[in-house]
Amino acid sequence: MSEVSGERSGIGRDQGDQPSPAPKTEALGMKTENLSAFYGAFKAVTDVDMEIRPNKVTALIGPSGCGKSTFIRCLNRMHEVVPNAYAEGCVKLGDRDIYARDTDPVTVRRRIGMVFQKPNPFSKSIYENVAWGARINGYRGDMDELVERSLKRAALWDEVKDKLKKSGFDLSGGQQQRLVIARTLAVEPEVILMDEPASALDPVSTQKIEDTMAELKERYTVVIVTHNMQQAARISDYTGFFYIEHMNDPGRLWEFDETDKIFSSPNRKETEDYVTGRFG
């Protein structure tokens, strides 16, 4: 284990109380090898080899139903939450296999946070939304400082600092999404997974989320599923294109490259057809 060390970085079983997560800058990357995902007998995604670079934004694009969301859920073991769903192959955070037998999925999900399409704040105050995750993970530091830091990193602090006791539901959709991001950041993850985080938001809120992402990658590794081509082109460093060649086939990672390459001269025709909107 070269990069993952110490209690905070460990992804074995939780040991109960944890030391305060120290602010960090360098995050861990991820890697999948021959990753396939199933829903019972149905194979949704097959043989994905992908290297997710640390402190970079990786965008996953592709037509609906080609396995992007399934794949991203495999990255923090959310996929197996669905009855009969399972994954095969290897997913590593740093050098550690997150599917290893001694790995606790709950700890994995703390280290690899997730933000969904629809903002899902808890039915609690803005403050508690952020503090709660850290508290149940045994955070013993200055909670006020942690809440402020997390809200600042999610670019929400200035808008909510005077109403921290108000309910998270009082915020607008875009603010709620940034609150969820702040909640995710409060437990100091290595990786943040985002499944269409801005698709339900207006352009101004979308812009704020995109600006937030540009700052997040300084401290975290970010993976985002998006149907918005321009968003992928704007915010990501690497882009993976998922594609199903024939109906009923599982989705495959069709092309993976630097975003500039994917959006200027991709190697495969299907990728070019998709990004230029000539699909179908």
Partner: peptide
């Protein structure tokens, strides 16, 4: 039209 790839080229 926000052209990309071959359209952008």
């Amino acid at each position: 039209q926000a052209p990309v790839a071959r359209d952008l080229r």
